[in-house]
Simulated scan of single mutants.
Amino acid sequence: MSDAGDRAVSVIGFIGSVFSPWYRWAGRRDPANHCCMNVATYGPGGRFTMTDRGRAALRQTEDTLTIGPSSMHWNGRQLVITVDEIGAPPKVSRVQGTITVTPEAITDVEVALTPDGAHLWRPFGPTARIEVDLSQGHKWQGHGYFDANFGTRALEADFAYWTWGRFPLRDGAACFYDATRHDGTHLSLGLHVDHAGAARVIEPPPMTRLPRTPWVLRRETRCDAGFKPRQVMAMLDAPFYSRSMVETRINGEVSLGVHEALDLARFAKPWLKPMLACRVPRRPGWTFKD
């Protein structure tokens, strides 16, 4: 998020593009054949890109992930993301440039989201600075976040619904992960990470409702009792997924952070996949020029 609070960006490198209808229709048998660099910018000139690419577009080394024309490179101190993607309809145009994420520290935290460890979350850098230099006027600096998820089963196979939030604080950042699993159990995690990367589990504030999205998606977030959280910016609004900039209060401190809500029971509906295909084109072929 920008320091001014008027722009934001999200980048997800997928190997096994979990939200791609093409991956689902292929039976999720070959993750490398459904890779993607999902780049979305928010605020004036915002664009959404999510191209499902084949294994010919994927290259990996210990410190670099390349998917077609875009890449992520860890230089030992920063994650440098080079972007060259095409926006999805109705705003079909190139999204090009560089994003640099500089974590204040790297954590060693790994969280199992299911008891058997089939889904893992790694919040590598919950406190970071970000510098954005992209097309459509997205040239700004702000505070950022760097994490990863790993899984051996489809998300909708194990989860019905979840919310996630990351909120910067004076002494670091707080992350909240709440999930309802299909087996009837729940995950309710509060994690605080200070500026040196030291992490500790915290008691989450009460769960508080947020207004439903235009797709009538249920939303809730962690918030001190007596404070009313509010959406400051709508970012991504899909039938099954919401990402937004939300103001809440945590242990007496008001914070503006990023919040996500994901209805995986709705995502599992077959009628949704053709809708997604209109926003997620499939490009199986690729040739590197070197």
Rank of each mutant, 00 (worst) to 15 (best):
F14D: 07
D158I: 02
R209C: 06
G226R: 03
S71R: 14
E156I: 08
S255T: 13
Y145M: 03
D158A: 13
P44A: 14
G117P: 00
T82D: 14
E220S: 14
F227S: 10
I106Q: 09
G45D: 10
T127D: 04
W215L: 00
R282E: 05
F159I: 12
P214N: 06
W25Y: 08
Y23F: 15
T163F: 12
T163L: 10
F167A: 03
A179S: 13
T51N: 02
P204I: 09
I81D: 00
R209G: 03
R94T: 12
V11P: 09
R282Q: 03
S244V: 09
I67Y: 00
W22S: 05
V254G: 01
A112S: 12
A88F: 03
T185F: 07
T287R: 15
I81C: 10
D194E: 05
W215M: 08
R219D: 07
R200M: 12
G190S: 11
S188C: 08
D6A: 05
V39H: 01
M37V: 15
F240G: 02
E110L: 12
P206N: 08
K228F: 01
V216W: 13
R94I: 02
V95P: 00
D158V: 10
A40W: 00
T208W: 00
T152I: 07
P31V: 08
S70Q: 06
W22M: 00
R230S: 14
A198H: 15
T163D: 15
I250Y: 07
R53T: 12
L210C: 10
G172I: 09
R218I: 10
A118D: 14
S242L: 05
H119W: 11
V258L: 14
G142V: 02
E247P: 09
K269L: 14
L58V: 07
T163Y: 08
V258T: 13
A40I: 12
R266K: 14
T221E: 02
R55A: 15
S2Y: 00
D108V: 06
G184I: 06
Y145C: 02
D237R: 10
R222V: 10
P214V: 14
K139Q: 01
A118F: 02
E131K: 04
P214W: 07
V132A: 03
R249D: 01
I130V: 15
S70H: 05
R166A: 13
E85M: 02
A268P: 03
L79E: 01
M235E: 13
D171M: 04
R200E: 15
V258F: 08
R77H: 13
N33E: 11
S10V: 13
A4F: 01
W162D: 03
T221W: 04
I130A: 11
H119N: 08
M1T: 05
F14I: 05
H186N: 04
D108N: 15
P284W: 10
K269S: 11
F159S: 07
Y23M: 04
R200W: 11
V9A: 00
G16R: 03
E220A: 14
A154C: 08
W164C: 04
F146G: 03
N75C: 10
